[in-house]
């Protein structure tokens, strides 16, 4: 008798294979007439922390959704270990997880139940083992006091940490972060950056981070990609990308505010 889909999924989750390579090949995405991502080619190596940067609306979160399999590109393909990321079957083989920008925590469940959700649904462990693992994960992220709170009772920083904790409970082979430090104070942003780096160092997970936070990118990235209006401008190490001659890259990394800009003058007169 063949192995059931659920059993195969459970086996794949428990057999952690962190050797995950992502190939983004000629990916284009458009919503109606609006082209959001245009012909992007990137290869992300196993175990790498790859940060995708760009201004708001540049198309980085859309690209991340393509990698996560939540969105199918109009053109091109995202491959995870050679398999099409837009097929659910790929994510049954390679267990990936995504830390959403706003956390996407289940609002009707407590923090504990949010973390226990994945192992319970896939029947990975006994309830006593799940409890042990959840409490341990909460302790690592200094969230043990929040175990029985509901997400609405948490601050922005705590929600982000709970979202990361929930992602860790998924025992993923690769992890994606969507704007992990947005709306956080510099201290909390630095804590989250440390957590991302530690997760990679401890588990060797391929990590894709979408952010517009330069400190995060310079601090933890192995390589950085800059996207501008849906197009890839540059991919390089944080050190090299800071020296990139492309003026659009420099404008993004080192923005200057010119108060004599006619736009501001116009604001003054209105």
């Amino acid at each position: 008798m063949g192995e059931s889909k659920q059993a195969r999924l459970r086996r794949n989750i428990l057999h952690r294979d962190t050797d995950v390579r992502i190939d983004i090949e000629s990916v284009s995405v458009s919503f109606g007439e609006q082209s959001v991502v245009r012909d992007i080619n990137i290869a992300i190596e196993p175990g790498e922390i790859f940060v995708i940067m760009g201004a708001s609306g540049a198309g980085k979160s859309v690209l991340l959704k393509c990698i996560a399999g939540l969105l199918k590109p109009n053109l091109g393909i995202v491959k995870i270990n050679g398999m099409d990321a837009s097929e659910r079957e790929t994510h049954h083989e390679i267990n990936s997880t995504l830390v959403f920008q706003a956390g996407a925590l289940f609002n009707s469940l407590t923090v504990f139940d949010n973390l226990a959700f994945f192992p319970r649904e896939h029947k990975l462990y006994k309830e006593s083992e799940i409890k042990e693992k959840v409490l341990e994960t909460l302790r690592i992220l200094s969230l043990d006091h929040a175990a029985y709170k509901i997400p609405a009772e948490l601050s922005g920083g705590m929600r982000k940490r709970v979202a990361i904790a929930r992602a860790l409970m998924c025992e993923a082979d690769m992890i994606m972060y969507d704007e992990p430090t947005s709306e956080l104070d510099p201290i909390m942003a630095s804590t989250i950056s440390e957590i991302i780096a530690n997760v990679r160092n401890q588990f060797g997970l391929t990590s894709v981070v979408v952010s517009h936070d330069r400190d995060l990118a310079y601090g933890i990235a192995d390589r950085v990609a800059i996207i501008h209006k849906g197009e890839l401008l540059a991919v390089d190490s944080p050190e090299n990308i800071q020296k990139d001659p492309n003026p659009l890259v420099q404008d993004f990394l080192n923005p200057t505010i010119n108060i004599d800009d006619p736009r501001f003058k116009k604001l003054e007169t209105t």
């Binding site: 939540l70 049954h92 995504l98 959403f100 925590l105 994945f118």
Partner: peptide, 9 residues
């Protein structure tokens, strides 16, 4: 939250 469910298979 629905996307999170999909991500968790």
């Amino acid at each position: 939250e629905i996307d999170a469910l999909h991500i968790m298979n």
